[in-house]
Write a protein that binds this DNA or RNA. Structure first.
Lengths: 352, 352
DNA sequence: GTTAGCACTCAATCAAGGAGAGTGCTAACA
DNA sequence: TGTTAGCACTCTCCTTGATTGAGTGCTAAC
C-alpha cells in the first residue's frame, strides 16, 4: 500500500482540519468541506488505509481520526521546499519593529520573543549567545562613587558586559585609569572562557609589577576576576508561556501547570534546546522530542549567526497540532532578522 | 447585636478553616476541629447571627458558610497589632539571600519578587523607583567601537543608567572625554524629569561654545538627549504569576486566564498600584480594590524607602482567602530588606 | 441560654437512556 | 475493479432522575 495522490489529499485535509479545530475529523466533514469529488464512504476506506499505515489514529471506535506524529512529519517534509524559501509576509516590518527598540542585545532578545509569541500565539524562546568564545577587547573601570566602581568588559563583538564592584576603600580616579589600562593590556585577546584559567596568572603578574598596582587593586582583583567569570551564564528568554491556556488541549489546569512548570524551568529547558541540531531550521514533532513532558508538543527552532557562526537559537513550542506553515515562516524570518541585526551591530568591524 | 467573645472565636475559626481549605465551613466542622465547648447547634445560631451582621455568607441554603470581605477586614484589623511588630522568622537569612546576588538594582528587584513569590506561593510584584526625582551626577561616554559609544548616566544615588549610542561617523577618544566633561558640567544637578524641558537649552549652549563641540557631537546630541528622556519608564517586576494555577478557586482555565492577563499587563497593573496609600503597609481586601477583576483578590503592598523617602512598592496579590499572617510578615520583611539594601548601597554618601 | 432532634434544602455524584457523530461492512453499481 | 449507498453498530456526550450527604433552621425540651 502506498500513499497515492488521493490519500495524500485526504491526509492533508484531515491535518488541516485538525490543526484548525482540535477535533477528530470524520469522513463526512472531509467530503463536505474539501472538494474531493468522492463520497464519504470512499474517504472512509482511504482513512482506514491511512490508519493502517500509521498516519492516523482513532481515539475511540466511533470517533473521527486524528493525525499521528508521523502524519505531521510527512506534512512538514512535504511543505519543506515551500517552507525553505518561505518568508513571513511582513518580514521587513517585523525587522523594523524588533530593531527599533533594541539598542542592546538584551532588548533585542526580549523584543524578539515577544513578537514571536504574539505572531504565533504559542510559547517562544531565545537562547542567548554564550560568551565563552567572545574575545576581550578592553576593560574599563568607571568611578561611580567612593565605594563603587562600574567595570565594563568590552568584547570584540562590541558587546559590553558590566559588573558593579564595591570597594572597601576608595581608589583615586587616575589610579582607576591606570588599572583599566593594565587590565586591558593583560586581558586583551583572551576569550571569556579562558578567564577562569588565566586569572591567577594575571593576579600574580599585576602583583609583581608594583608600578601599576595598588593595595586597593590587589584587594579587589580576585573579586573582580571572579565576577567576570560569573558573567557567562546560559541565558534563555521566553514569552507567551501562558498562551497555552487558550488552547483546548490545555484547558485542564493540571496539564497546563505541568507544561508551564517545564518551560519555566529555564535550566532544564535550555538543556533540551542544546540537543536540537545545528541546522538552520529544526523541527521536532511530538515523540521525536526526548522529553516525555513534550510528547504532545512540537518544537520549531532556528539558529542565528554572527559572522556565519552559530551563536544562539530561537524557537517556538506548541502543540503537535500547530500551524506549522505560519510558525515556521515566522520563526525563520525572525531568526533571520536577528542574524541581520546582530551582524550589522556586533560583528567585528573590518577597520579595527 | 454585637461581636461578643464567642462570636469572635467562631468567626476566627471559620476564617482559619476557610483559608486552609477553600471550602464552605459548617457548624459540625467547627465544633469538632476547634474546641469551643459548645454544640454544633449553638454554633449554628451564632453563625446565623454572624451572617446577619455581614461577616458570613452562604453560597446556597444548605452549605456551610464563607467569610465575607468584611470578615477578612475584621480579621486583619484584629491581627494588626501582632502584624505591625511581626517579622519573618528568617528575615536575616532572607536579606542575605536577596543581597548576595544583587549587585545591581535590577537584580535586587528580580531576586526580591522571586523570593517573595516562593515564600508566599502567590503572585508578587515590585514597582521599581522612577528616576524622575533622581539627580544627575555625571555623564560618561565610553567608546566601544568606531560607531558605538556607551553613554553612562551616573545619578546621585549611585545608580548607573546606560544607553548604547550609534554613531554615523566616529568621534575620537579625546573628543569623547571632552564631551563627557561638558555634558556632565551642564547637566550636573538636574533631575531626570527636567531633561525633557532643558534639553533644547543644553543643545543650544553646546552649539554656541564651539570649543567643546564638534560636528559629530552636534549630530548625535538630540538623539542622545532623547535617549536619556526615554529611560524613565515605569517598571514593574513580577513573579509567580502562574502560582494561582495551584489554587482551587482558579482551576477553571478561563478564570485563571483572566487573572493572568490582568496581572501580565504591566501598565494597567502599575496604575492600580499607584492608588494604594503611602503608608508603610497597605492591605486591600476583595471589593476594596477598585478593579472588578480583583474583586476576589487581596493586595498586600508595602513601600520601600531611600533616605526616608518613599521610592517604590512591593507586594503580593492572591485570593481574599489568603494566609494574611504569613503574607503580611513576609512582604513587610522583604520590603524592609530592600530598604536596608538600597540605603546601604544607593544613598548619597556623606563624604561627597 | 444550650442542645438534641428532625424536617428540609441543595450541590454533587452516579446510572440510565437517548441523540448524534462516525465507523465498518456488504451489496449493488458504473 | 473502484466507488457508493445503505445499514447496523459503537462510543461519547448530554440530559434526566434518583440518591447521597453535608449542612441548615426550627422547635421543643433541658
Amino acid at each position: 500500500m502506498s500513499l497515492d495522490k488521493r490519500k495524500v489529499k485526504i491526509l492533508k485535509a484531515i491535518i488541516t482540519s485538525y490543526i484548525d479545530n482540535a477535533e477528530a475529523v470524520g469522513s463526512r466533514t472531509i467530503s463536505k468541506k474539501y472538494e474531493l469529488g468522492v463520497s464519504p464512504a470512499t474517504i472512509r476506506n482511504e482513512m482506514s488505509d491511512l490508519e493502517d499505515m500509521g498516519y492516523l489514529v482513532q481515539p475511540h471506535t466511533s470517533s473521527g481520526r486524528i493525525p499521528t506524529d508521523k502524519a505531521y512529519r510527512y506534512y512538514v517534509n512535504d511543505l519543506w521546499e515551500k517552507i525553505k524559501s518561505s518568508r513571513h509576509p511582513n518580514l521587513a516590518q517585523l525587522r523594523k519593529i524588533i530593531e527599533e527598540k533594541s539598542n542592546e542585545l538584551d532588548e533585542l532578545f526580549k523584543n524578539s520573543v515577544r513578537i514571536l509569541s504574539q505572531f504565533t500565539r504559542y510559547t517562544s524562546f531565545v537562547v542567548a549567545p554564550q560568551l565563552k568564545q567572545s574575545v576581550i577587547k578592553r576593560i574599563q573601570l568607571v568611578p561611580v562613587s567612593e565605594h563603587k566602581v562600574l567595570m565594563l568588559i568590552i568584547l570584540q563583538a562590541n558587546i559590553v558586559k558590566q559588573v558593579m564592584l564595591r570597594l572597601n576603600s576608595p581608589i583615586p580616579f587616575d589610579q582607576l585609569e591606570k588599572i583599566s589600562a593594565s587590565l586591558s593590556e593583560r586581558m586583551y585577546g583572551y576569550k571569556m572562557e579562558d578567564i577562569d584559567t588565566i586569572k591567577d596568572t594575571i593576579i600574580k603578574e599585576l602583583y609583581i609589577s608594583k608600578e601599576t598596582s595598588s593595595d586597593a587593586l590587589m584587594e579587589i582583583l580576585p573579586y573582580l576576576m571572579e565576577q567576570i567569570a560569573k558573567l557567562d551564564d546560559l541565558n534563555v528568554y521566553s514569552d507567551g508561556i501562558t498562551n497555552i491556556l487558550d488552547l483546548p488541549e490545555y484547558n485542564d489546569v493540571v496539564k497546563a501547570r505541568e507544561f508551564i512548570s517545564f518551560v519555566e524551568d529555564k535550566s532544564s529547558f535550555a538543556k533540551l534546546l542544546q540537543h536540537t541540531g545545528d541546522s538552520d531550521l529544526d523541527i521536532c514533532i511530538g515523540s521525536e522530542n526526548k522529553h516525555l513532558e513534550l510528547k504532545d508538543c512540537s518544537l520549531i527552532t532556528a539558529t542565528y549567526k554572527l559572522n556565519g557562526k552559530l551563536i544562539g537559537r530561537i524557537g517556538v513550542i506548541g502543540p503537535t497540532r500547530m500551524d506549522y506553515d505560519n510558525v515556521i515562516s515566522t520563526v525563520k524570518s525572525i531568526s533571520d532578522a536577528i542574524s541581520d541585526i546582530i551582524n550589522q551591530n556586533y560583528s567585528i568591524e573590518n577597520k579595527e
